[in-house]
């Protein structure tokens, strides 16, 4: 059961206040990084929803993000939709695709699930890469940003865009948390623990899994829309499996199955990447070593580690569990 412990609420508040405060003082490049963090945060919340709580470790979330980005750009450029309808369309398409993938892969577990999602992700990548409709290797430019001038917000400004992206992270978090608290979320967590029992209780397993995957896919698609709006240029690289792998790294770095942890992971990952890559072109190796060290430490990521330490300091709140989400 997903609960908002005081620690999680504190961390969330700190993240929200910190990011907003930074958005108002940061220079240009700081705002770029903030938007990058926000987009990655949305993707990893989506991934944690299925991987952390449902045990569905996906290697196709990069592809779902990419599908969202391409659908948004094509809908806005070729079909001439304005930004928000195009976003709705893109999110729906990512969700639909994720539902199909989730339904087909529902029977696979463990490494087979990972490989099956990898296969679908690579299919999408190859399709986009080869199709001349999508500009192939050269990508597509000209994705528009939403026009909020009616309410006095100019999203072409980096500061406004960063704040808009942070707001989207908040929206994503609320959707993910609400999903986990709903009947579907409880089924998902139950499936992760004991699939046979839930099957015996009469749950249509594939449908629960596919629906959860669709919600996660919708969020990944939203991240894709934001990525397209942020850089205003998209390329097939967005769909590559290494994007999915990197997202998985971020989830682990932050803390699997904590929903808050992956956001912390996104902040750490992007900041580390920029700091280390400024020092050496061999920054991948350093990120790799940090990843190995985190996993070897057996802590559930940075946030999981803090949670475990806090929990060890006080007696287990066994009885509080039932009313924690009241």
């Amino acid at each position: 059961m997903f609960t908002h412990t005081p620690l999680r609420l504190t961390a969330l508040s700190l993240l929200a206040i910190g990011s907003l405060a930074y958005a108002f003082v940061a220079g240009f490049f700081g705002l770029e990084i903030l938007a990058e963090i926000a987009i990655l945060a949305i993707l990893v919340i989506a991934l944690d929803l299925v991987a952390g709580f449902g045990g569905m470790v996906s290697l196709c979330h990069g592809a779902l993000l990419g599908v969202g980005a391409y659908a948004f750009t094509v809908a806005a450029n070729a079909a001439g939709l304005s930004a928000f309808p195009a976003m709705v369309l893109a999110v729906a398409l990512s969700a639909g695709l994720a539902f199909v993938i989730g339904a087909i892969c529902a029977r696979s577990i463990g490494i087979y699930f990972i490989m099956a999602t990898l296969a679908f992700g690579q299919m999408a990548y190859s399709f986009v890469f080869q199709s001349p409709l999508f500009g192939g290797d050269d990508g597509l430019s000209g994705a528009p940003r939403p026009d909020l001038s009616a309410i006095g917000i100019d999203l072409t400004d980096s500061r406004a865009f960063a704040i808009y992206a942070i707001a989207m992270v908040a929206l994503t978090y609320l959707v993910a948390a609400a999903t986990l608290r709903s009947g579907l979320g409880r089924s998902l967590i139950g499936l992760h623990h004991n699939e046979k029992r839930l099957r015996a209780l009469g749950l249509t397993v594939w449908r629960a899994k596919a629906t959860a995957f669709a919600i996660s896919g919708a969020l990944a698609g939203l991240a894709g829309c934001l990525a397209a709006q942020h850089t205003q240029y998209i390329s097939p690289g967005l769909l590559s499996w290494t994007v999915s792998g990197e997202a998985l790294v971020v989830v682990i770095l932050g803390g699997l199955g904590t929903l808050v942890g992956p956001i912390v992971g996104a902040v750490l990952f992007v900041v580390l990447k920029h700091e280390i890559s400024a020092l050496t072109p061999y920054w991948h190796a350093i990120v790799g070593m940090i990843l190995i060290a985190v996993v070897m430490s057996r802590a559930n990521g940075v946030f999981g580690f803090v949670e475990a330490r806090m929990a060890a300091r006080k007696p287990k709140p066994v009885l509080q569990k039932a009313d924690a989400d009241a």
Partner: peptide, 23 residues
């Protein structure tokens, strides 16, 4: 030491190893 740590940990450690190996 990671043999019993579950597939997730193994996937990630060896994923990290790829980064190190390439560089």
């Amino acid at each position: 030491s990671q043999r019993r740590a579950g597939p997730m940990a193994q996937v990630l450690i060896t994923f990290g190893l790829i980064f190190v190996a390439v560089d």
